[in-house]
Amino acid sequence: MAEGEGPVSAVLAIPAFLGSFGGAIDFIFSQRESVQAGEPIGGLSQIWDLLATQMAVSILALVLATAIALPLGVWLGHRGVGEFAAVAIGNAGRAIPELALIALMVAFIGTGVLNVTIAVTILGIPPILTNAFVGMRQVDRGAVDAARGMGMTELEVIRRVELPLAVPTIMGGVRTASVNIIATSTIGSIAGVKTLGDLILGQATYGTEGVIAGAIVVALLALAFELILAAVQKTLTPRGLVLQRAAARVSA
């Protein structure tokens, strides 16, 4: 039966690629010999080394990017100045290829953890800056006017009114930055930092299963960051704001 061949081969194909994933998962959990020489590769301890490096670079970069971009964006947004710059930096951030940034870094500044961390931080800054600016500007002008009119100082207006109300937008920026940072720290491996990108870009050494294993762990790392940041956002978003948005949705 020639007709039966399609479905049958499709059914057979599923275990075939599941097999690759299976091999990749095996790669993660148990050590084996490298493709060319007899070096031991894979296994939890190597994965953990790569993961730890990438996490250290990523977390440091996210903290640095936030520390730089958040106060700046908040201040500009509070004052309502520099809109063009804030938005243009956000747009430019999207247009810069992470690969180009890392390659330029390698060509002109050098390799190593410090340089990669700086490059990764640079790519984390634009979304946080732009979103912080936009988030502050979006706060209901009536609430800000009332806050000032009741005698809040500028810092109190920021801290008690604008910042809490800008949380969802600001956290949106931090989440985008986190996506950029994990992606860029992955290819940090071409600048001499042994992150999970080392597996992904090292088929010659690690084989297909190692490549896929790297991709799986990077994807899980990115999802873990996303989940944590989503939880942080949920914790920081004031309940009244959630209710207000729900009410707006119902009346819309």
Binding site: S20, I200, A215, A222
Partner: peptide, 18 residues
């Protein structure tokens, strides 16, 4: 959103077996 979160480079290679 979940798909967007996965770094592109990882996604490319997750598709490799498929």
């Amino acid at each position: 959103g979940v798909l967007y979160t996965i770094p592109s480079i990882a996604l490319f290679l997750l598709l490799l077996p498929i």
